[in-house]
Design a protein around this nucleic acid. Sequence first.
DNA 1: GCATTCTGCGTATGGCATACGCTGTACTGC
DNA 2: GCAGTACAGCGTATGCCATACGCAGAATGC
Lengths: 258, 258
Amino acid sequence: MSDPDVDLPESVELAWGLRERPGKGPRRSLTMEQVVTAGIRVAEADGLPAVSMSRVAGELGVATMSLYRYVSAKSDLLELMADAASGDPPAPRGPDEGWRPALARWARANMVAIHRHPWIRQVPVSGPPLGPNGVRWMEQGLAALRGTGLNAAERLSAIMLVNGYARYWATLTVDMTEAAARRQLSPDDVGVHYWQQLARLTRHGPYPAIRELLAEEADGGAETAGGEEEEFEAEWRFSLDRILDGIEVLIRSRTAAG
Amino acid sequence: MSDPDVDLPESVELAWGLRERPGKGPRRSLTMEQVVTAGIRVAEADGLPAVSMSRVAGELGVATMSLYRYVSAKSDLLELMADAASGDPPAPRGPDEGWRPALARWARANMVAIHRHPWIRQVPVSGPPLGPNGVRWMEQGLAALRGTGLNAAERLSAIMLVNGYARYWATLTVDMTEAAARRQLSPDDVGVHYWQQLARLTRHGPYPAIRELLAEEADGGAETAGGEEEEFEAEWRFSLDRILDGIEVLIRSRTAAG
DNA sequence: GCATTCTGCGTATGGCATACGCTGTACTGC
DNA sequence: GCAGTACAGCGTATGCCATACGCAGAATGC
């Protein structure tokens, strides 16, 4: 079913600690971990655009080109950084936790990881996870759906859907917060500003649904407004609950039929 | 409610055709449309990384720096390109089309637009839509949910959820297809290769859920496999149906209670 | 002790976005 | 019809960037 030696990108093998030292030649003076954490340090301090090969090399006191003995291209480095910064998936809470709370915790942890390391959202994803942490996240996500009656493809699609949402949401909120900070406003004010802009643009022309939205927003907008924090939270929960409801419909139909 | 003059980014005003010619000074030798379509032409031909200010300027027969009379930064140009390439939202089909088919059509059109212009997925989104097409897409999305009993915030969250999924899915499939093409494989083979890689990495260690997945995939993988095209389609539909089911649960509860 | 093989890295190439300031142009107010 | 003014196009220059190539020296196997 699985050949003993499927070929894997070199940096992935290094990250998993496979690959033995090759005997010949001088010792490496750095570890993969040092390289990756140096990259993370830069991203954390000055953002992903500041992560250049020369900057990371400088951080380690080596020449720029030395890094290419560890990663085959900058994109490799970025992927490894993202994997490392994702950290540990949330610990399972025992077999009697239902799939729904487990998946909700997993989703939130997903979102929180990006909030904690906002630069992750700007790392282009080139494919399904292969890094050590990515695979462990996958494991935990799938574990939440064991015994639900969903088949393999469905379990996979479901966690991808949830992961996609968490990433999307985190990206959106971080972008908004950063846009706000750049103009020295609160995230709330950015929202208000957007409504005003939209109102101006749609003042003339066929935009009935948007105008209905704006009117309703202006009316009742205040009634649900708690703190900023709570509002973000409520919106996060809203869409997540829609997704989980949708999954639940399917699971129920499976357990009823089967 | 809405001030007569909320400030809008200059390029947005240009794109909407607001802003009168300023009397003084020489005429502009280009239109915004020319600049944007030149950028799109480059992206279409050689991908987004090929879109540099000098390349676009060359396409138009003007000097690089001339473009900065039209956009304030490259990111402006990219956003305008993405908006223009999004094209028209799907036409509404009449008031007796239910919210669900309407939203499903909208979602698919969203996804198809990215498939048609794959570079769109690489344009960083800096905030909610302000371009002419983006606003019209928003209008159509919201229109699909009129009269469902959902309030403004809920309608907005719902279409954002659907849009996020469409974008996510399109990105994923395009990335996979391009990765396959780069290695001269079929997208299917890339999938198989991934399973093999995952199997190797999880052979030792605590990955029960992933191993279960791999086993099940290896067993029954063939039984559902139709053409590639159909499989993509089925997976797209699966998650979309989860989301729509979730929205439907809420709508039903609203119309029952209200 | 020699061949081999790998490491670190200096150098060089060919990009890139964009700040600045100049020149000529088309209009406004007189 | 003319002066003043604000703007268009753009040449030049700065300071980045990723990475290809090849060399010198280090560690090992034999």
